[in-house]
């Protein structure tokens, strides 16, 4: 097991380096000079030259890449061309917002998708099933920006039920930043009003972001459950007169869990890589917005930093899913 873990972690490292290599050289294909992009229309020639020198952009490509890797060994992601700050600092500032929103969206996806999928499978081809399938189709195919603007307009502007964009009511004093997760920071500061407001602010974006995942999850769960429900051992369980709850949760769902788990890992990974549209519409200061902005201003160190972070998070989640397999299915062993 330990050897397996070491091997997998080594693989994560390998993936990380691969990501930097690909991103770095793709960035060079863009025909524009990042110095010109960063300095704008009024910049003078000397300023542009000095900028290139300061960020080492005047050096040969391989040398630039070598320097990047050497810094990376010291966990230094370089400085952003746009903000001039260490990329790691920027990530520290933007990632918690994404983390908070993704976890909430993930919760929404699981809370809606899983029971809906199970329910639909148990009532196959009857009205609950049709209802779930219809909603899954609707939520899964509604463009995020449309859903987001629609819900904001109705629930916030017209009915005033839920707060607008942002993470906290501007009239509240925000809790001191400790973790960067506003809900958690509010709890740490024992500020119940801020906690409640932060939760309120999470509801809409988490629903919008989580709904597509919920739809996917519902369909996947339904399919996996249908397959398991037709197995002999489930029929036996029914025949033994076990309660529905036991049959569904212990015998069916546990055995349908593997494909669902794989999907969950992928979903969480996707959510954690930042959702540009949801973040933009809800003015959520997360990775998605940071990376789009960095990409449009040709801020390659920032883009590479985000790509690397997302890549590593994905790899680690994959590893976690694989380890959970062994927990769920005793036949699976890692050596």
């Amino acid at each position: 097991m330990a050897a397996y873990l070491v091997r997998r972690l080594f693989l994560v490292l390998f993936v990380g380096v691969g990501i930097t290599f690909v991103t770095f050289f793709i960035a060079q294909v863009v025909p524009t000079d990042p110095a010109v992009a960063a300095l704008g229309e009024n910049a003078r020639e000397e300023q542009i030259r000095e900028f290139r020198e300061r960020y080492g952009l005047d050096r040969p490509l391989l040398v630039q890449y070598g320097i990047y890797l050497r810094r990376l060994l010291a966990l230094d992601l370089g400085r952003s061309l746009r903000t001039g700050r260490p990329v790691a600092e920027d990530l520290k500032e933007f990632f918690p917002a994404t983390l908070e929103l993704s976890l909430a969206a993930f919760l929404v996806a699981v809370a809606l998708g899983l029971p809906a999928g199970v329910w639909a499978a148990l009532r196959q081809n009857r009205s609950p099933d049709l209802l779930v399938r219809l909603f899954a189709l609707l939520l899964g195919s509604t463009p995020v920006f449309f859903l987001a603007i629609l819900l904001l307009d109705v629930l916030h502007r017209q009915l005033g039920l839920l707060p607008g964009p942002g993470r906290l009511d501007p009239y509240l004093i925000p809790p001191p930043r400790v973790t960067g997760l506003v809900t958690l920071d509010a709890l740490l500061a024992k500020d119940l009003a801020a906690f409640r407001d932060a939760l309120h602010h999470l509801l809409l974006p988490a629903f919008v972001l989580g709904s597509a995942s919920a739809a996917l999850l519902a369909r996947m769960t339904r399919a996996a459950m249908l397959e398991v429900l037709s197995q002999d051992y489930v029929r036996t369980a029914w025949a033994k007169g076990l309660a529905e709850r036991q049959v569904v949760l212990r015998h069916a769902l546990k055995n349908a869990a593997l494909p669902i788990l794989t999907l969950l890992g992928g979903l969480l990974g996707g959510l954690l890589s930042g959702a540009v549209l949801t973040e933009t519409i809800f003015s959520w200061p997360g990775l998605g917005r940071y990376v789009t902005q960095s990409a449009t201003s040709l801020d390659f160190p920032a883009v590479m930093g985000v790509t690397l972070l997302v890549g590593v998070v994905y790899s680690l989640l994959n590893l976690l899913v694989d380890l959970l397999y062994a927990l769920l299915d005793p036949r699976i062993r890692y050596a």
């Binding site: 603007i149 904001l152 307009d153 916030h156 502007r157 005033g160 707060p163 607008g164 964009p165 942002g166 501007p170 933009t280 519409i281 809800f282 003015s283 200061p285 917005r289």
Partner: peptide, 21 residues
Amino acid sequence: VVLRYIQEPAVLRTALESGEI
């Protein structure tokens, strides 16, 4: 004074109309 980052014009308008900004 609180300066809120709102990039999307439609959301900006919603926020103004709802009194949030």
